[in-house]
């Protein structure tokens, strides 16, 4: 997934190879990760696609099914991965992920601790940020979840950057061996305040901690504990609003009272377009195909994620 392996980096010249992970894109909401194999076949509602037809083609191209329907084959990115990974837990999405990585000041070479691993959505983005020389240590108390995450990281090719361990961070804290080595710590735990003292021990001075909690009561208790060792404690909520874009034919109709003459000779003038008529009666009565203009318009989508969680950031005090 990451270009650290120059053989996998995007290029006009590079064709899809046996063993590549690709994202099969049907629509923005229908995508699927597929490992390319010589004899592999992908089946969907449009028919079947032979992997052997894909090999040698560049990524980002259309491939056709036996029925002549097409899908796109895309290079995996952490963003696409977040959309296609199997949800073993509630996962973090792009807005929170982006903000966390930036606010934790994660740059190449950093050591980042994370608990829990969950479905590995954030871990993948953290790995991208610490590459090529840094490392992510991810902990989850759930044995099976940890195993699945390891498999995923193997598949996406980031396993050299992420170590997954089974450990109850709330109960046991982070392992001693990482003491004072972490540039940043991320907590997504039901009782994050229990892990804060251990997180403080792991962090380098001036290192940043982030705690993600869906409930304000969790935030409240976490902040109380943070105040003893941390400064710059700040809590945020970050959401995304997406927009629909449509081209629509709108009638440009003269305001009643204005002469029809002027409209015909002058054509639609910018000032007139303000008088767009939503009212069918007028539009119809003045119907005249030259008066219909195509306009590209945008409006917010009607539904959106209203809440994910609160993000609390804090910086370890510098005492030396």
């Amino acid at each position: 997934m990451l270009p650290t392996d120059s053989n996998k980096a995007l290029s006009f010249k590079r064709g899809i190879q046996d063993g590549d992970l690709v994202i099969v894109y049907e629509r923005h909401d229908v995508m699927k990760p597929v490992k390319v194999t010589k004899d592999g076949v992908l089946q969907n509602r449009f028919g079947f696609y032979k992997h052997s037809d894909w090999i040698g083609k560049p990524l980002g191209t259309k491939v056709f099914s036996n029925k002549g329907k097409f899908v796109y084959l895309l290079a995996p990115t952490p963003e696409l991965w977040t959309l296609v990974l199997s949800h073993r837990t509630q996962i973090l999405y792009i807005a929170d992920i982006s903000f966390v990585v930036m606010y934790l000041e994660v740059v190449p070479g950093c050591v980042v601790l994370e608990s829990g691993t969950g479905s590995g959505s954030l871990s993948t983005s953290l790995a991208r940020a610490v590459a090529p020389t840094g490392h992510v240590y991810s902990f989850d108390y759930h044995e099976q979840r940890a195993a699945c995450a390891r498999e995923d990281f193997e598949m996406t090719g980031i396993s050299s950057l992420v170590t997954v361990e089974v450990r109850d961070i709330q109960g046991q804290g982070f392992p001693e061996k990482l003491s004072g080595l972490a540039d940043s710590v991320f907590l997504d735990l039901p009782q994050p305040w229990l892990a804060v003292p251990s997180a403080a021990k792991m962090l380098k001075e001036d290192g940043v901690l982030c705690s993600f909690s869906p409930c304000i009561e969790q935030v409240q208790r976490t902040c109380e504990v943070l105040r003893s060792d941390f400064i710059e404690i700040r809590t945020f909520e970050v959401l995304l609003r997406t927009y629909e874009v449509k081209e629509m034919k709108v009638e440009t109709v003269a305001v009643i009272g204005e002469s029809q003459d002027e409209e015909d000779n002058g054509g639609p003038r910018p000032s007139k377009r303000k008088h767009l008529s939503n009212n069918g009666d007028y539009a119809v009565s003045h119907d005249n195909s030259s008066n219909a203009t195509s306009v590209v318009m945008a409006r917010p989508c009607s539904e959106a994620r209203g809440h994910t969680g609160y993000l609390t950031f804090a910086r370890l005090q510098c005492l030396s």
Partner: peptide, 12 residues
């Protein structure tokens, strides 16, 4: 996709 981020800070 066109997105617009929204950010709100809290006093805790």
């Amino acid at each position: 996709q066109i997105t617009e981020p929204w950010l709100r800070e809290y006093q805790v």
